[in-house]
Amino acid sequence: MKIFILFLLLLSTTYATKINDVANVVGVRDNQIIGYSLVVGLKKTGDGTTSKFTLQSIANMLKSMNIDMQSVDIKSKNVAAVVVTARLKPFSRQGDKFDITVSSIGDAKSLEGGTLLMTPMKGVDGKIYALAQGPVSIGGKNDKGAGSESHSTVGLVYEGGLVEREINIDLYNQEYVTLSLKESNFKNSVAVQKAINDMYSTQVAVAMDPKTIKLKKPADKSMIEFLAEVQDIDMDYKPKNKIIINERTGTIIAGIGIEVKPIIMTHGDITIKITEQATPNQPAGSMVVDDSLVIGLNENELYTKEGTTTVANLVRSLQKLGATPKDIISILETMKSAGSISAELKVI
């Protein structure tokens, strides 16, 4: 398996961005809704007789249409029981359409070619907020296609959801509103406060904590106008240093400036020795990666100048030593646990 490493300089520096990109308005959010229903019209790829809840659902549906039939008498394999999920966007209005996801919960082989029957979709409060219905698309070929079988029991119904009940968010009549940073950071919270107050030359924003900024709209503007302007304000933003690892694909994303503190560790047949030296040693048989890094090929040791060791250099060096993606990921995780890497490490 090949490994892909992306080194992003922006992850370790301060740069200008708009407030809308780093903060949300509290209360303005998506809402999860869910429903249970049947997908019909399948080509003998539906649930079998072992999925008794499917057979009972078919019997209940037929009974609602004045057709009296017992579940034990139903042998159809053209029907599958599914859970229907979606996100209801903020400010959605009656009649708005949205996409929904349909997932099999029985032993159906595929939902390809099926049609979702009318499905009431409820929120966490048990109230019906939308109805869903329509043809299911699995976004691929039949179950003989490469890699398609594992995904053919999950499909989409494009614009299959229809909003029936609105979730009211009254921003217009509010005097105060709260912004929530997507990532907690004291500096960024103060930076948002400063950028907004500089824009209006008065104290309209107050940073309450590293994630929360409270705003008071100016007297000459509506809340909608105020928020439209606030979201478009530029600010100095410093994101957290992160190392993001995808174990399935072997992809590593890291900032160029993320430092690695001195450490000595062994992983399999690889020995890593990171030391702070004014001039890096260059043992016999070693090779120079760049002006700050030397690899000792005989002992698999890394020697670096003082204060120049970074994750970018480390990963590049490990590749030259022939380390596999699994080795590199394990080494980074171990270094994080040992405190040699202070940046946040996220495995996805």
Rank of each mutant, 00 (worst) to 15 (best):
residue 212 T to V: 05
residue 323 A to R: 07
residue 279 T to M: 10
residue 276 E to D: 15
residue 227 L to T: 01
residue 107 D to A: 08
residue 180 S to V: 04
residue 6 L to R: 13
residue 302 L to G: 03
residue 29 R to T: 08
residue 343 A to M: 05
residue 245 I to G: 04
residue 221 K to W: 06
residue 270 I to A: 01
residue 23 A to F: 01
residue 238 K to E: 10
residue 53 F to R: 11
residue 323 A to G: 03
residue 346 K to Y: 08
residue 113 G to I: 01
residue 76 S to Q: 08
residue 298 N to F: 08
residue 140 G to I: 05
residue 164 E to H: 06
residue 52 K to R: 14
residue 328 I to E: 02
residue 149 E to D: 12
residue 31 N to E: 10
residue 226 F to C: 01
residue 334 T to L: 09
residue 106 G to V: 02
residue 290 D to M: 06
residue 264 I to Q: 15
residue 331 I to Q: 03
residue 119 T to L: 06
residue 296 G to A: 08
residue 88 L to N: 03
residue 44 K to E: 04
residue 284 A to Y: 12
residue 284 A to S: 12
residue 276 E to L: 04
residue 210 P to G: 05
residue 60 N to A: 14
residue 73 D to A: 13
residue 241 N to P: 06
residue 75 K to M: 08
residue 12 S to L: 00
residue 125 D to A: 04
residue 329 I to V: 11
residue 298 N to I: 09
residue 216 K to E: 00
residue 154 V to R: 12
residue 157 V to Q: 06
residue 32 Q to W: 05
residue 209 D to G: 05
residue 21 D to K: 15
residue 200 Y to N: 01
residue 168 N to A: 11
residue 247 E to A: 12
residue 256 I to V: 13
residue 78 N to Q: 10
residue 306 E to I: 13
residue 332 L to N: 05
residue 175 E to Q: 15
residue 202 T to P: 00
residue 48 G to F: 04
residue 254 A to I: 03
residue 171 L to E: 08
